[in-house]
């Protein structure tokens, strides 16, 4: 490897964008060679032109902010319900016995499967979409909090108790920080599911948003816009995950993990 290649390999931008280069090239080649009819498959140039047009007319920014607003409400309520519920179920054997079969049952009913009845109840509204996102976030979050609490070494609880910590202090000082890595990955998984559920809900319930935009474009046969929608979804989630969720999860897991290793030796 030459010095230049090594330097490029270390650069964050190259590492992030590099893998996409061959994919885009292949995409461009397939479009250029007209392997598929142009009405079904457009090249990067067409999508780029579409992006310009949608930005100019303000449609994309508008839809984007609609989608993100919905996600925001969904996440807000999802965390607001999921976090306390998770710790309650994880801490109380009684709550656990009572709710565990229910949790597994409702987790198994796919989020999208709720849409028909949610539309009957709330109509084609923000409430309907939020309901589905909240639903999607809550269950994986609760399950990973419970798993996180189970992973807290019992000796840490014993140590805290034998130094004078009461039940509430054991919770705030040991259980919460001890389960944090698992909670962090639960939030990340939950948000990932929520994001997908949002797009699906917008396709079905949609009056606006990226999901709606894509499905509407399909109706009028604008393949470039469909492609654009898919790319926007990918970029947006990638950014959210890489900039916010992954570093947070990584930071907790790394510190905690190191300690578990050294404790095991």
């Amino acid at each position: 490897m030459t010095g230049l290649a090594r330097r490029l390999g270390r650069s964050g931008a190259v590492r992030t964008l590099g893998p996409f280069v061959p994919v885009v090239a292949l995409w461009w080649l397939l479009a250029q060679l007209q392997v598929f009819p142009p009405a079904f498959f457009v090249g990067p140039d067409a999508v780029l032109a579409e992006l310009g047009g949608l930005l100019e007319r303000g449609i994309l920014p508008g839809y984007l902010s609609d989608s993100l607003t919905r996600l925001w409400y969904g996440v807000l309520f999802g965390l607001g319900i999921g976090l306390p519920l998770g710790f309650l179920v994880g801490m109380s054997p009684v709550a656990r016995r009572l709710t565990w079969p229910l949790l597994l049952f409702f987790q198994a009913v796919a989020d999208i499967a709720w849409l028909p009845i949610v539309i009957v109840w709330f109509g084609f509204s923000l409430t309907a979409v939020t309901f589905v996102i909240v639903y999607t976030i809550v269950f994986p979050l609760v399950l990973s909090i419970v798993a996180g609490i189970e992973q807290v070494p019992p000796e840490l609880v014993r140590a805290a108790r034998s130094m004078g910590a009461g039940r509430i202090q054991v919770f705030t000082e040991v259980i919460v920080p001890g389960s944090l890595p698992s909670v962090a990955s639960g939030v990340r998984t939950g948000l990932g599911y929520g994001w997908r559920a949002l797009v699906a809900a917008e396709i079905i319930v949609g009056t606006s948003g990226i999901g709606f935009m894509m499905f509407d474009a399909r109706r009028v046969g604008d393949v470039a816009e469909v492609f654009l929608g898919m790319i926007v979804l990918g970029i947006l989630w990638y950014a959210l995950d890489a900039l916010l969720l992954a570093p947070f999860e990584h930071a907790t897991v790394e510190r905690w993990g190191l300690v578990r290793q050294s404790a095991a030796t």
């Binding site: 014993r158 140590a159 805290a160 034998s162 004078g164 000082e173 944090l180 190191l258 300690v259």
Partner: peptide, 29 residues
């Protein structure tokens, strides 16, 4: 109870607390 402090075989230190945080834990409680 705090009248019977325990030193564990696997240390059972709080990994998310510093040395200072660990040593002052009981006093803070």
């Amino acid at each position: 109870g705090p009248d019977r402090g325990v030193v564990f075989q696997n240390h059972a230190l709080f990994p998310w607390k510093t040395v200072q945080g660990n040593v002052t834990f009981g006093l803070r409680m």
